[in-house]
Design a protein around this nucleic acid. Sequence first.
DNA 1: GTCTATAACGAGATAGAC
DNA 2: GTCTATCTCGTTATAGAC
Lengths: 196, 196
Amino acid sequence: MPRWPASDGDTASSVLDVAERLVQTRGFNGFSYADVAAELQLSKAALHYHFPGKAELGEALLVRYTLRFAAALETMGSQPLDAPGKLAAYANLYLDVLRQDRMCLCGMIAAEYQTLPEAMQAIVVQFFLDNETWLGRVLEQGLTEGTIGIGGSTEDTARSIVANLEGAMLVAWPFHDIDRFQTAASATITALRPAV
Amino acid sequence: MPRWPASDGDTASSVLDVAERLVQTRGFNGFSYADVAAELQLSKAALHYHFPGKAELGEALLVRYTLRFAAALETMGSQPLDAPGKLAAYANLYLDVLRQDRMCLCGMIAAEYQTLPEAMQAIVVQFFLDNETWLGRVLEQGLTEGTIGIGGSTEDTARSIVANLEGAMLVAWPFHDIDRFQTAASATITALRPAV
DNA sequence: GTCTATAACGAGATAGAC
DNA sequence: GTCTATCTCGTTATAGAC
């Protein structure tokens, strides 16, 4: 049981770990197989064994990320929390990403959308749709509870929440300033308080 | 006076025009000198005559863009409009970019921030700061007029507006859906109506 | 100002040994 | 599963002619 390479129970997932961080910090067009190989002290050929090409690596990356994200949402959704609590928890998912000095994976590649392999394009679109669906349910719960108040439809409000959080992250990113995200995120969430 | 190449009164600005569109659609890491040269039917060497390297081209691009944007803001700011009118005009600047099937130049490169030449990094940060400063003044005008109402400070609200519009654009981008931007943008602006 | 030619390098990918 | 070696191509950039 060697201590190095760490977590060699699965090289493929180590590759995904490194690639994921590189995409979230440099973008899909901003990293190469050589970057990943160097960091894991592997050859580029070894990477090609696990993922035939960069397109497949990118796709695997996005699939894993969106599955994890969906699982986190499912867990949060079934928690005994009121709607504002769930929305705060949702915003905290984004905050945690920034705390790791990363951009939202899907926000990053949304910018690069036009240059991506088709499989990746489809996944990023679905990611946003799934987020909006989940948020829409939380908003409905809040309306039922009387814990939130919204101007428009739950669908449009859900879209606004995703857009606002992604934008807060995008702008905070060059400033390397978490407070910048926090303030904008809080404003978005508190704007959903019920009218008195 | 030849009709082709069009606007050869200044090759450099034609280069900037093409490069600008490419950055706004594919990102700074998603286009090359060869792309620009092919489109203008020039050699790559000719591009290097006008801009020594890609870093200098990117910088020139951002300088021109931010100067134009600043000029547009200055014009709008001195217009005899109330604050809500100026905010709507501001949101329309973003809308016009999407209508050309482009992302906000600075939003795009904000995502790529960590991979950019330092000169470009400095300019994108300043772009957001200038936007927030302008918006802060409009919000102050609105408070004086009684035409807007905000929860927090003018500074934080200005930051939220920039973040919300950039985010609405980023998410609308993969969907290629202008309505998606419009709805989120309207929500952001109408949320600033004064409390009755 | 623009060209051709080419250098120098990096990225994505494959072949075949171990 | 991982390696070395190699291939092909694209990208940035320069040299020097016109």
